[in-house]
Design a protein around this nucleic acid. Structure first.
Length: 528
RNA sequence: GCGCUCGUGGCUCAAUUGGAUAGAGCAACAGACUUCGGAUCUGUAGGUUAUAGGUUCGACUCCUAUCGAGCGCGCCA
């Protein structure tokens, strides 16, 4: 819709135009502050320039009204314009907002270590990632999601050790010494008993078995993580193993050497990351010959870029922010364009329950399990609440709020709007196909505003994806639902003179709500 | 100490990325049901945008300093 307005305006104004949503709906549908930026150049007052522009555009048939107010040029679209668009939305729900993008994107997210179940912080990144994924798909991008499994390194060994010791304690009734940094929590006990089931209790008698236990425990944890993700409707296109990656280490290393990106000092291999904006150089191979965690990411990103996408997006926990410079410098040293990688940080989450800090479950060890929260409030509410906030700010929320069934719970509020519409349409006995051919001719101002807001969905989605700001979609849906409720209270639809028109309007609103919710990962309700 | 992120009504968050009178929800108070589902709606109240300067037609947004919060500053992952 915006695109079309741009095209029209290009005919009249030979300048770069910025279209905005007016502060107040009564000004019009679109506005541009173009007169302000021209003011300096033309050495005239913005008000006069705006007036002149208005005179130039005023006869455009697609615009019902063009006005200049305090230097802003405001545009109101014609009903024919809105009508055509609304019919399109009704007939092409799944393509509403889709356009040819011709862009391949690789999205990496979650990538939590397979050493335990997902906690609430992981959930935020996961939901953010999946929502961006769904939106990108809907908009027409070719996007692939990937989970990087950290299955190398000593945290896996630590997992195996933890299971081994707990097995000794719980199953063999020994009293082993637990070092401080071992994994705790109920899930380790579960793992121990599963291990005993699979390999027999004697496996805990010999330390030599730890490697076997590690591997088994890691696979089990990965399955558990997948289940956690499924509980909020997330599936990945692919999984990549760090261990597998290391087989390609020599390739990446050769590349780094060729680009003189590494040097040896104190028997260790260093990456010259400080040359690319990092605070200092980083070790990639230890003096014992073991590659570091960074090496894994060097190979992984080499591998990613070899696969030749147009854009790479990583979603990391906020505690990784110091890591960005390192990885970007590695990408540059490997000979790629590091600006193709965008890293989004997802901030910490603190949960409240009745105003008090949420009690961490014993099962979890020392963090809040994602599955506990999903069990308590459900996937829909959790997904929605995580998306109502910018990902880079801390988030506090009270779990009790999500259980309420009134306007304080946005999911109910939005679903109720959708259900209301469908009840009205059902009651009218009309079907959507016949409604989509109705022409708008007698909508009043509030009806037209509602229609316009509903048709704004594609713009919102583009915005959300470009800025990686899903809170705008959540906000949009709340506002749209609010406008609908308001409209509903002031207009009787069934039996009105323009009943069919109003039904078409409502059906259009329902499309936007339904599509918006679907992209957030929520199935809209037809009845409540 | 250094770096990154952030600071907006009592609470949780917005603000079209430098634009029009800083907006929503919750909580509070006052109203609307012989209804196309009141799981809703209408209204009132609440702000020196942490503080102090600066940049310009114009600042919550950009710059500088100060205060405060979180995170990072491993050859852990």
């Amino acid at each position: 819709m915006k695109k079309k307005v741009y095209q029209i305006l290009e005919k009249y104004i030979d300048e770069k135009i910025i279209l905005e949503k007016p502060k107040d709906a009564k000004f019009g549908h679109f506005a541009t502050p173009i007169a302000f930026s021209l003011a300096k150049k033309l050495r005239k007052s913005p008000m006069i320039i705006a007036d002149e522009l208005v005179n130039k555009i005023i006869d455009e048939p697609n615009f019902k009204e063009v006005t200049a107010i305090k230097g802003f040029v405001n545009i109101k679209l014609s009903s024919e314009f809105l009508d055509e668009y609304s019919s399109y939305a009704l007939k092409n729900e799944n393509k509403f907002g889709k356009s040819d993008k011709n862009k391949k994107i690789l999205l990496e997210y979650v990538s939590a270590n397979p050493t335990g179940p997902l906690h609430i912080g992981h959930a935020r990144g996961a939901i953010l990632g999946d929502t961006l994924y769904q939106i990108a798909r809907h908009l027409g991008y070719e996007i692939t999601s990937e989970y990087y499994i950290n299955d190398a390194g000593n945290q896996i060994e630590m997992l195996g050790n933890s299971v081994f010791l707990v097995g000794q304690e719980e199953i063999l009734n020994l009293s082993p010494q637990f070092p401080d940094e071992f994994y705790r929590g109920e899930y380790i006990k579960d793992l121990a008993s599963k291990t005993a089931q699979k390999f027999g209790e004697t496996i805990f008698e010999d330390k030599k078995n730890i490697e076997k236990i590690s591997n088994f425990a890691k696979d089990e944890m990965l399955e558990l993580i997948k289940l956690n993700l499924q509980s909020v409707n997330i599936e990945f296109d692919g999984f990549v193993s760090e261990k597998e990656m290391f087989k390609k280490w020599n390739n990446s290393l050769t590349k780094l050497e060729k680009n003189s990106a590494v040097y040896t000092k104190d028997d260790k291999l260093w990456l010259k990351s400080s040359e690319c904006g990092d605070e200092k150089d980083r070790v990639v191979v230890r003096d014992n010959g073991q590659p570091t965690y960074l090496a894994g990411d060097v190979i992984y990103h080499d591998d990613k870029f070899k696969r030749n996408y147009d854009q790479y997006i990583n979603i990391w926990g906020a505690d990784h922010h110091g890591y960005i410079a390192r990885v970007k410098s590695a990408i540059k040293f490997l000979g790629y364009d590091e600006s193709q990688l965008e890293v989004i940080l997802s901030q910490m989450v603190s949960l409240l329950k009745d105003g008090e800090p949420y009690k961490m479950s014993k099962r979890a060890g020392n963090f809040i399990l994602m599955s506990d929260v999903v069990d308590e409030v459900g996937s829909d509410a959790l997904r929605f609440i995580f998306l109502t906030k910018k990902s880079d700010t801390h988030l506090d929320f009270d779990i009790e709020m999500l259980k309420k069934e009134d306007s304080s719970n946005p999911v109910y509020y939005i679903n109720y709007a959708h259900a209301r519409i469908n009840q009205v349409i059902a009651k009218s006995g009309k079907n959507i196909e016949s409604l989509s051919d109705v022409k708008f001719s007698s909508l009043d101002e509030s009806a037209e505003n509602l229609l316009f807001n509903a048709l704004l969905l594609p713009e919102v989605l583009e915005d959300v994806f470009n800025q990686k700001a899903p809170q705008k979609l959540a906000d949009y849906l709340k506002t749209l639902a609010g406008s609908l409720h308001k409209f509903y209270n002031s207009h009787k639809v069934i039996g009105a003179d323009n009943e069919d028109e109003l039904l078409k309007l409502l059906a259009t609103v329902a499309v936007s709500i339904r599509v918006g919710l679907k992209l957030i990962g929520i199935q809209a309700k037809y009845k409540m």
